[in-house]
């Protein structure tokens, strides 16, 4: 069967790829485009390890057909650092050891950035609520929540 030709933008770069109709965005990112930062945990939208943004909206790439990327603007974890310069969230996750095995970390970082982009001053309850689509089986979440809260405070300080 003929492949579908898809034109999209990923991390600011125009990207074209060919895919089969049943391929998910996550499969294409990882297996065809070499963007393996997004992880497959559950493959059913429960764990958030595959989180990316599409036109600025946080979504699960495992629940998106790759063909639906046509004409949209995608951001993945690979686009978060600026060259060698880590994003403040990435630095803080390292500093506070807000990870252990690391499988969930890209998803948490993408989701945390999406949260802070729309709410720079979240309460702890809000952080926990808006990260409810991301599962971590190692940390118990506390360090992750603290990292996000501290980055939010740092970024507000910088913006002042």
């Amino acid at each position: 069967m003929a492949k579908l030709h898809i034109s999209t933008t990923i991390n600011g770069e125009p990207i074209e790829f060919l895919c089969d109709p049943p391929q998910t965005m996550l499969e294409v990112l990882r297996d065809q485009l070499g963007l393996t930062g997004s992880k497959e945990g559950c493959g059913s939208g429960d764990c958030g390890a595959c989180s990316i943004t599409v036109d600025g909206r946080l979504v699960c790439s495992c629940l998106m057909l790759a063909a639906e990327a046509e004409g949209h603007r995608l951001e993945t974890i690979e686009g978060m650092a600026r060259g060698d310069q880590l994003h403040p969230l990435q630095k803080k996750f390292v500093e506070l050891a807000a990870l252990q095995c690391g499988i969930c970390t890209p998803g948490f970082l993408v989701a945390s950035k999406a949260l802070l982009d729309r709410n720079p001053n979240p309460t702890e309850t809000e952080v926990r609520y808006w990260l409810a689509g991301n599962l971590c089986r190692c940390t118990g979440y506390d360090k992750i929540i603290r990292a996000v809260m501290e980055v939010a405070a740092d970024m507000r300080e910088t913006a002042r």
Partner: peptide, 9 residues
Amino acid sequence: SASPQVRNQ
């Protein structure tokens, strides 16, 4: 319902 990701989609 669901999660932030799913509600966005």
